[in-house]
Design a protein around this nucleic acid. Structure first.
Lengths: 217, 217
DNA sequence: ACCAATTATGAACATCGTTCAAGATAAATA
DNA sequence: TATTTATCTTGAACGATGTTCATAATTGGT
């Protein structure tokens, strides 16, 4: 996978140059990743990044069209990490209820442990700016897919499209509690309190869905 | 209510000056309010605001310590408007289920109709910056309070503290669906789809809570 | 060794929010 | 009313920001 070649530069290049650019791209991604994790996406600075990478400021723009695109690439990594955390969370869980609780807890834990990474996912491009790239939605879907397993047990009557949409809805609901909790705009803000509320929410949703299913029979 | 006198300037002032400042403050708030509604908080510019208000850039800083504080004041107005919208939404509703559905719909509608106002509430000060002022939490609580009515019917067993916390949790969940829906990061993004998912979520939560209550009896 | 094409550089640019010396203004005083 | 003094208002200047592009450095072929 060659980021530079694949995504931004298609025109003729000297072979040595391309190798250097891909290496620089990797270094920039790593550094931006660490910087965002440490201080948040708002504190990412082009000049500081260039100095840390040992290159000129202009070099950044020979590899990424702008900082937004670099941030988006880091966000892609974050989505992968969250996906991995969710996958690990459901291992050894049998009941759909327990699976959903573990998934929600894992999501909250990632947000608490990596607030910079996590908030960069949503703090960025909230309004109608450039549309998100296709691979972004694909990776988001991969993360959502973990919720579909327990949902299929709770609501076997739903077709796949409805289940996919419901998975996104449940994810969004948990996300809302995590977001307003961590931002201090609702709830008391401590991870424990947020965790309690996430559990209460997931439990209510799961029981509500199960009740709906029982009603249909 | 005199914003300038009450909040930022306590020292001796000339009477004519104070009158002018309060008038300027009101004008700036109105203009910022309209600008945020029209183009979003990200597009608010000190120079443009000064020109629109017919004052110098420095004059803004004689009335507000910085733009953040002005935005926060506008956010206070937005919270009042949302509070009013929620209050109007539950009029004539009898069942707790219907009340919660109407409340969620009203919240979504406000967000759709006033995305600038709405996103300014959350897009701003997400990370650990200055703590939110006390009146901000108070106004947020007023908005949350509308959900407590139906919750009291669904879960009469809860004490007030738990009910307050549950109200915030339910609000956060609905907010999450609205946010990820409107940002296009989950769900298809059309207000209709988001509305459908909000209804499904609220229904599940309400049934889940009611089931929990029945179980306790 | 030379040259032409390509690539890297970092000062310069446009734009922010914010400040503060200096001019304008209003109250106090003679 | 004229003068003084305290206060307020102004907008150019400051420091930072992301981004660009003329210029210098470098590379690969002849």
């Amino acid at each position: 996978m060659n980021i530079v070649q694949d995504k931004y530069e298609q025109r003729s290049q000297r072979p040595a140059t391309l190798a250097r650019k891909t290496e620089l791209a990797a270094r920039l991604i790593d550094l931006a990743d660490a910087a965002i994790d440490a201080a948040g996406v708002q504190e990412l600075r082009a000049r500081a990044l260039a100095e840390a990478a040992g290159c000129s400021v202009g070099a950044i723009y020979s590899v990424f069209p702008d900082l937004d695109e670099l941030i988006l690439t880091v966000n892609g990594r974050t989505l992968d990490r969250i996906d991995a955390a969710l996958a690990a969370a459901v291992l050894g869980c049998t009941t759909p209820m327990q699976q959903m609780e573990r998934l929600a807890s894992a999501y909250l834990n990632y947000a608490v442990d990596h607030r910079g990474h996590w908030s960069a996912l949503f703090q960025h491009r909230m309004i109608g700016e450039r549309p998100l790239p296709g691979w972004y939605a694909t990776r988001l879907d991969l993360a959502f897919r973990h919720i579909e397993g327990p949902l299929q047990v709770l609501r076997p009557d739903l077709d796949e499209a409805s289940r996919v949409q419901l998975a996104r809805t449940v994810f969004s609901a948990v996300h809302g509690v995590v977001e307003l909790g961590l931002s201090g705009k609702a709830l008391s803000g401590t991870p424990e309190t947020i965790g309690d509320q996430v559990q209460i929410l997931v439990s209510a949703i799961a029981h509500g869905l199960a009740w709906k299913n029982r009603e249909l029979k």
